[in-house]
Nucleic acid binder design. Structure first.
Lengths: 347, 347
DNA sequence: CCTCCTCGTGGAATCGATTACATGAGGAAT
DNA sequence: ATTCCTCATGTAATCGATTCCACGAGGAGG
């Protein structure tokens, strides 16, 4: 593969001049510019990004360490992150942690070794030494969706408190009184917060959340199935399950169906995270929708701000409830794939 | 960030020795090794992958340019690619082409600029000059899922011919005679092949595929919706639509539902690509399942073989039919989320 | 005791770019 | 005519690693 020296030789100029042309530095003659361009063309030369990065100490690359790529929510997040990054002139390298701390650590390490300019993380746990160390050492970093308390890093996330309140009001209005939740891992902020928000909202209606109605999941479908089976085996099973993410809701659907029961008649179901498939499931699932694209974009902007020496602030965007049929209400008759929400949180 | 020089200074040795320890070269004394390790620890030194790559001319990184990350089939493929690559000591950088040739070209270019060791592509079109040039120039490359005829690059894909034949037999047995297809872009091999296989299978039953029953889609949900609406507007609409990928099937489902019609009663539906959500849609969708994980792994192995100087061969794996309820047959009574296929292709 | 190997180590070149500094030509100002 | 700038260009240092080559110490064999 042709290097800058080959181009310089072909053009009859020094590498310095070639470099100047390539980085359109003002002080080059038109003649030199033309000759360099011709040589570049003739050799189909492309600058070596590795060499350039070594010299300039910047890779124009962002690392994104995500909890689980197979989760449509994170897939969408990753996509919006890449789009915004590309618009700002950065590439993105995605690392999939699969909800496993040791894999997360592996990806953080290799990304850091590659000297990415900044790191976007949706932490699976409370943070490995390597990650905390990097944050302390000043590697530009932003948490997205989930975060680690006590670490001084901007957080871009969505606040589901209002939406959960709307959801509980909706469920209460439908006559449900025994409400259960399939929680996410306690090591994640989203795992804890969603339970807290749910409990708080139940409190508003004078209901409480007994321990038996808190199932411990891990954000994966299997755990949703397992927890739901446990709920159905209780002497007094809940009337509704609220899954803290879309995959556990899918697992819950599996469990209900495997027993030959029906949603919502035998057990109502709601989920955190709205995904397009929820429109087509049997029945369509009532869910709390996060502004996923906006989160990804905001996270990238905050990170790039940090990288380029600007402040880079935390952002919190509201989630909203999307009512469908999985909790018992007849479907609003509408053509739209996303029936109108009960209430839209203010932004 | 500490460099190898700092480590050398701290250990009281030369950078050469430090480098030898780090790459566990045989000829280093135990004493030197200990001192280097101590210095590495003390400075929490990590080697700079950028510098290393420049010197060794290898990045231990694979590029994966995928047609559409939001498509669950490709998400799963990407995941298996990353897993296998990691097992073989490589990282993966994913570029999402979003079915847009110019985006595909953008990613191929930046990946090549970064001097990735090899490229895995699922081409969106017939190939940009840059990509064809890279293939000709000997950049290790493997096509996965889709390929470009006439380019001398191994292809790892799945053959759906038998499964499509099984599908058509199934549809025919259910009494369907007017069968339509939502095709993928003609620029892609999968777009063309699935239509051919379908037509051929229809021929086996003395049926033909009129032009009016071939809708032109682009592998995205919207096109599935549009084409299906067109089918429903025909004087003699088809009894079945076969969508050439899962997203177009989703669009078809939208279209049917928007008219207040039912699957399979008013229109039966089948899809190429099985995704886990198809079990839970209303009704569960009959689909052709590709061995996605195996494809991803085989593709990585073929690519790494090429990179490391071994042959690196093409692989074709069979797809199989998974019957559910969207074509009219009552569901087989089973607990399994994937009811037993009508017939399993031999591997 | 001399020669020859082996082993551990260090010096320095190298990968492909960017960039500070030097240089020389040519024009403007005095 | 002399001095001083500006502009286009080149030389060479540099980034952080790897690796070829040279060298000295020490042991084995004659």
């Amino acid at each position: 593969m042709a290097s800058i020296k080959d181009v310089a030789a072909e053009a009859g100029l020094s590498v310095a001049t070639v470099s100047r042309v390539l980085n359109d530095h003002p002080s080059v003659s038109d003649d030199a510019r033309r000759r360099v361009m011709a040589a570049v063309e003739a050799l189909s030369y492309r600058p070596n990004a590795v060499a350039r990065s070594l010299r300039t100490d910047q890779t124009r690359t962002l690392g994104l360490v995500i909890s689980d790529v197979m989760n449509p929510y994170f897939t969408e997040l990753a996509r919006s992150v890449e789009e915004e990054a590309r618009a700002l002139g950065y590439s993105v390298i995605i690392g999939n942690a699969d909800e496993r701390p040791e894999l997360q650590d592996h990806h953080v390490t290799t990304l850091l070794d590659r000297r990415i300019d900044g790191l976007l993380v949706s932490p699976t746990d409370r943070g490995s030494p390597r990650m905390l160390e990097a944050a302390r050492a000043g590697t530009p970093m932003v948490f997205v969706d989930r975060w680690i308390p006590g670490v001084d890093v901007p957080v871009v996330r969505s606040d589901g408190r209002d939406a959960v309140r709307d959801l509980v009001a909706h469920l209460h209005a439908l006559g449900h009184r025994r409400l259960a939740i399939i929680a996410g891992p306690a090591a994640t902020t989203t795992g804890r917060e969603r339970v807290d928000a749910f409990r708080e909202a139940l409190g508003d209606h004078g209901l409480d959340l007994p321990d038996a109605y808190i199932g411990q999941g891990d954000f994966q479908a299997d755990s949703g199935r397992r927890v739901t089976e446990g709920f159905l085996d209780l002497a007094e099973p809940p009337e509704v399950v609220f899954a803290a993410d879309n995959l556990m809701a899918l697992g819950a659907l599996d469990a209900v169906r495997a027993r030959g029961l029906r949603v919502p008649d035998d057990l109502a179901l709601a989920a955190f995270d709205d995904v397009r498939w929820f429109v087509h499931t049997d029945p369509p699932v009532t869910a709390i929708a996060q502004p996923t694209g906006a989160l990804g974009r905001a996270a990238v902007r905050a990170l790039v701000d940090r990288i380029e020496g600007r402040p880079g602030e935390s952002v919190t965007l509201p989630a909203r409830l999307v009512v469908r049929r999985s909790c018992g209400e007849p479907a609003p008759t509408t053509q739209s794939p996303h029936p109108s929400p009960v209430r839209r949180s203010t932004s």
